[in-house]
Design a protein around this nucleic acid. Structure first.
Lengths: 220, 220
DNA sequence: TTTATAAATTATCACATGATAAATATCTGG
DNA sequence: CCAGATATTTATCATGTGATAATTTATAAA
């Protein structure tokens, strides 16, 4: 990716030696690993990561004791640090209806997670680490789906119960999963149609609104 | 997996040499590859496939010119040959309501595709071959989703148009994708709850029924 | 039993990979 | 400008991998 070179007196090309601070170099290595692993999976070689980062392969081992710890750093960069606090602001903005609020939220959210890097790493990760998957599932459930259920209940005027039951989460999970799947379709096909994405979100919310209306109507 | 051995006079263990017909051997190799690739991905080694099949690694190359062609044989076994014609019978049985019919269909269908082998190979495949993914998407759309839309339209009494438009497929795709995602959740978590599965299908169909009722009611 | 066919194994190659040790060049503080 | 600290590279190892050639042995037909 960034393999710069110099030419010495004898004409042979010699790599430039950029001396960086450990923190900066570490960041660059992680960025390179994110790109490479997203493309080739976690079986991508450390040599390719190094080439992509513009360094030699052994240098990688000054920053990470082994490949596994590099992979963990990639997880942290992509999954842990990807939650945008602005999303929380949208989710909590009660000046909008639940429908409009979650429309806005999902449009912002999918702008990040529908990037090929995120989606592919997510798939690769879930194929090798059930833990990462479980952890992120928890995040989605607590940060997105439970708020959705709660706010919708309030909107429908049946706010007696505070806890969100597993049964109530089934439909939101189904729809959220459907949206993820939609994003995956687009990424495999190489599309990046933001209008179609907004439509998909609209349909998803439409279905949720109809479903909850029918369900909570009888019990309110 | 099936590495049988014999002991010769000097006590050293020597592999048994089972001489099979080419067709039978080929089948065994593919079965072994299906198991191994489902677990380790397509980067699983040919040596491991061979061990799993109870043969030596070079023998594999008498049946497949290279690893890629073995992978293609795995695709064929798992994806091409997995469609059960009994499913078509269910889909075409108009003695049942659309809801009941697709409930039955999806319960049978997911019994097959929610197996870890199918789901994992599906994920591995879609990460490396957009073609396989596109091909299967087409199958789902033509065999499942378009029939669903058509039959539902008839049931709602608005059978004027025969063609199914892309817009009409958005909701079914979202729900179908959500169900796939549900299966993936279960497989990663190691669950195999068929009651939960039936419930998920019920909710999915409930949402589709409500959605179509609301949508086609105005235009019929 | 004998023998020819081909299924299966042993031996091996070239290359890629994760990882380590030693040598070298770059930057910073004095 | 110099010297020490250390970021970076070169050289290297052990192992794993896809693939091929040569050899051996099981099996069925004569």
């Amino acid at each position: 990716m960034s393999t710069q070179e110099q030419h010495n007196s004898s004409g042979a090309s010699v790599p430039i030696r950029r001396r960086l601070s450990p923190a900066a170099r570490r960041d660059e290595i992680i960025s390179a690993a994110v790109e490479l692993f997203a493309e080739s999976g976690f079986d991508g070689s450390t040599r390719d990561v190094a080439r992509c980062a513009g360094i030699t392969q052994p240098l990688l081992y000054r920053y990470f004791p082994n490949k596994e710890s590099l992979i963990e750093a990639v997880y942290a960069r992509v999954f842990l640090e990807s939650w945008d606090s602005a999303w929380d602001d949208i989710l909590q903005d009660r000046s909008l209806s639940v429908r409009d609020r979650f429309q806005r939220f999902y449009e912002a959210y999918t702008e990040t997670i529908f990037r090929p890097v995120w989606l592919r790493l997510w798939h690769f990760a879930s194929l090798r680490d059930a833990e990462v998957y479980d952890w992120y599932k928890e995040v989605v459930q607590e940060q997105i789906l439970k708020p959705l259920v709660r706010e919708r209940r309030i909107e429908l005027g049946c706010d007696q119960a505070f806890l969100v039951t597993p049964a109530e989460l089934a439909a939101p999970w189904l729809l959220h999963g459907g949206l993820l799947n939609y994003g995956w379709h687009q990424q495999v096909a190489g599309n990046e149609d933001s209008a179609g994405r907004a439509d998909a979100i609209r349909q998803m919310l439409e279905m949720y609104m109809l479903f909850t209306e029918a369900r909570y109507a009888t019990s309110s």
